[in-house]
Design a protein around this nucleic acid. Structure first.
Length: 318
DNA sequence: AAGACGAAAGTGGTTGA
DNA sequence: TCAACAACTTTCGTCTT
């Protein structure tokens, strides 16, 4: 299924931009159950609904229940409604399977050839099924929405068509694919987070190798991650409010303008910006707490935060 | 005692000859 | 292929609250 497009008669309903600019790609709906604020942000790109005021993440895994078509009266509704499962890339034969029965009377040679062929088909098929279930399992553990799972599955299918799978570890490939699709969708997960939920024997190094390999062979491009993309998730993991989230984004934007982010790791920047924003707002989080959530060390947070506060002339009084 | 700080050495990846 | 290099980590002693 595609990213849903709902009735767009109400204006402002569908300005959907790239996730690069954080303001675009979002639409306002109403009612935060926590603070009563009217400014909820629904972001299909990031698959989150959150409150812009208190930062409560209402849903991290929204699936738009609406149909992808539009109907203006009940007649159209009944005409356009369909039944049956949607076609999905996550089922190994796209959900359209055909059962081949064999008939007697075939020559013995042909039969053997067929047996061999189906044997090969079965083993590759089996690994394919396993790969898809792995993608599903990991995506689930990473709290990723269905459209990202679909995209990853589709890429795996593509890789198979290009015969890129043979001789490589499925776990490494699927991990790398998820890592790639997350970045493409503007909801980056850190490499460490992906490694954590993949099967034990896979190391970061292997995932990274598969990642580079797939980018090259499938001719994919991922733009460098903006620290901003990490902010909402890290903030919600730290139970920080929406004020702090926007303050952190603000800091990152200024830092980018001042070219303080060049050559630095985006996660470290995000971590430091959040650390500063939290202090400024009186909701102090220790360097350790931020470090645990972001996966960068306290030392790096310190270094980034020193640079940012000095160069941007932010007074951080503890 | 916990948090913040910073020096120094180590690690893994990138780059350019 | 190798060495230089930058970013980041690990470790640890010291200072601050």
């Amino acid at each position: 299924m595609e990213t849903p497009e709902k009735d767009n008669k109400e204006k402002g309903d569908k300005k959907r931009g790239k996730a690069k600019d954080n303001a675009a790609g979002k639409e306002e709906i109403t009612g935060c159950p926590e603070c009563g604020s009217k400014s909820l942000i629904r972001d299909y790109g990031k698959a989150e609904i959150f409150c812009a005021d208190c930062g409560l993440v209402i849903s991290e895994n929204i699936v738009d229940p609406g149909p992808e078509w539009r109907a203006f009266d009940s007649e159209q509704t009944s005409k356009r409604a369909r039944v049956g499962a949607p076609m999905t890339y996550r089922i190994h034969d796209k959900g359209l399977s055909t059962v081949v029965t064999w008939t007697s009377g075939q020559g013995h040679n042909k039969l053997n050839i067929w047996q061999q062929r189906t044997h090969i088909a079965n083993t590759t098929e089996r690994s394919f099924i396993f790969a898809l279930s792995e993608i599903d399992r990991m995506a689930c553990a990473l709290k990723l929405p269905v459209n990202i799972r679909e995209a990853a599955s589709m890429l795996y299918r593509k890789a198979m068509k290009k015969r890129l799978i043979r001789g490589r570890s499925i776990e490494g490939l699927t991990s790398a694919l998820l890592y790639i699709t997350c970045r493409q969708y503007g909801v980056p997960r850190t490499l460490e987070e992906v490694r954590e939920i993949s099967r034990v024997r896979v190391g970061q190094k292997e995932i990274r190798r598969a990642y580079r390999f797939l980018l090259r062979e499938l001719d994919l491009k991922v733009s460098p991650t903006s620290p901003i993309d990490f902010v909402p998730r890290f903030c919600s993991l730290l139970n920080l409010s929406g004020d702090i989230r926007s303050k952190a984004v603000e800091i990152i934007k200024k830092a980018t303008e001042a070219e303080l982010t060049n050559g630095r790791g985006p996660i470290g920047i995000a971590a430091a910006a959040i650390y500063i924003a939290a202090i400024l707002s009186g909701e102090h989080r220790t360097q350790k707490e931020v470090s645990d959530v972001t996966g960068v060390t306290e030392v790096t947070i310190r270094n980034r935060y020193k640079e940012l506060s000095e160069q941007l002339e932010i007074d951080v009084l503890l």
